[in-house]
Amino acid sequence: MKHSISILFLAAGLSLSAQVGINTDSPNAKLDVNGDINFRDKISVLNVMDNTLSQGNNDQILVSQGEGYPPIWKSLRIPEYEPNKFYLIFNNSFSDKTGIKFTNNEHSSIAAKNTAFTKGANISSLPGFKKIAGLSQPISVFSTDSKTYFQFETVVQANLPVNGTPDISIDYACGIFVDDKLVNLRQRNLKASSAASTFITHNQIGIVTNLSKGQHNVSVACSRLASYRTASDVVLAIGINADTNINSFITQSSLKVDVYEIPQVFNPIIN
């Protein structure tokens, strides 16, 4: 009987007053409860599309749509992961059409390349390396157990003449960096061919394990290492054309990043 009278008084209070407070003298809403609430039956939400009351479905939760809008029911999905297995958590790809160029006077001053080109070398210790601007991008890592794969592709060209004897060629190198630390490097030689302004496709795949959790910056930088029998006006171009027999669309660079992790933090998906 007492419960029935209390409910009647509460209903009457709500109808007579703009705001009612329970355990508070200054309510901030039509019903302001300062304390715990136990629901023993159901919760219904107004569906503004057809003015019906919706109780939602099993395992759904109420999600706010912001001030002035009623909450709506949403399904909460948490991906199922098997322990100690790697899953693709982050992946992205980037492109660049600006590229970088090196004149005949822009050779790297690195003398002992076998000791300079080591894993973890800072880009500041590698003079002559230039970054490809559009490939400098942030990536995210969410677990301490991870494997990050990089796939870099570009076109390398020089306005070389037709080859002679001995060969006319240029040595160059490209490195993949994480937080300006070298994680992968490839050194190659561009040799003049039977046609002028020769070009080659450069492919490079790298991997680094167990990056620290958080955001990192990945970048690609290249350098002109040495030239053999080249004229003073010969330009080495990476990710951009050095002559008109190809264009910037053909020479553009791309970088693909895949981060595989053993999940430690689960990010719920709401739809």
Rank of each mutant, 00 (worst) to 15 (best):
G206D: 01
P27M: 08
N23M: 05
G35C: 02
V155E: 04
N122P: 01
V178P: 04
L46W: 04
T24S: 07
Q187L: 14
S17N: 15
G128K: 05
H107C: 13
P127V: 10
N84M: 11
F9I: 14
F249L: 14
G13H: 07
R186G: 13
L135P: 03
P161H: 07
V235R: 02
T154C: 14
T154V: 10
N114K: 15
Y260L: 12
V220Q: 01
V218C: 02
F199S: 09
V178E: 06
F86H: 09
S26R: 11
L225D: 12
V48D: 07
E82T: 11
A158G: 11
Y149F: 14
F9L: 13
N247W: 02
S4F: 13
S64L: 12
N92W: 06
L255R: 00
K256C: 02
V220L: 02
N47Q: 05
A116V: 09
P138Y: 07
E82M: 11
G239A: 13
L236W: 00
T244M: 08
I132N: 03
I270W: 04
L236M: 03
E80F: 07
F117V: 03
Y69H: 12
G68Y: 07
P166R: 08
A116D: 09
K130N: 04
L31Q: 03
I262E: 06
T52G: 10
Q187V: 13
I238Y: 01
V220K: 00
E153R: 08
Q204V: 01
S136R: 07
L31R: 00
L182M: 14
I250P: 01
N247G: 07
D41E: 10
T165D: 15
K97E: 14
F177W: 04
K131S: 12
K74V: 11
M1C: 15
Q151C: 12
K30W: 00
T198Q: 12
Q151G: 15
I110W: 06
A121D: 05
D171W: 04
Y172C: 05
L160F: 02
I176F: 04
I139L: 13
N91R: 04
N57Y: 10
L46M: 12
A18W: 01
A11P: 00
G68Q: 06
K42Q: 09
I43D: 08
P127I: 11
D180E: 14
H3I: 12
S6N: 11
P71S: 09
L160Q: 04
L185A: 10
D167L: 11
P70Q: 05
Q157Y: 06
F150E: 10
P79S: 06
S227A: 15
D258K: 05
T118G: 02
C222K: 00
V156Q: 03
V183S: 04
V45Q: 02
E82Y: 12
R40K: 10
I240K: 08
T251G: 06
N241S: 09
S124E: 14
F152A: 10
F152Y: 14
S212T: 06
F39V: 15
S232H: 03
V234K: 00
N247H: 01
N105M: 10
P263S: 08
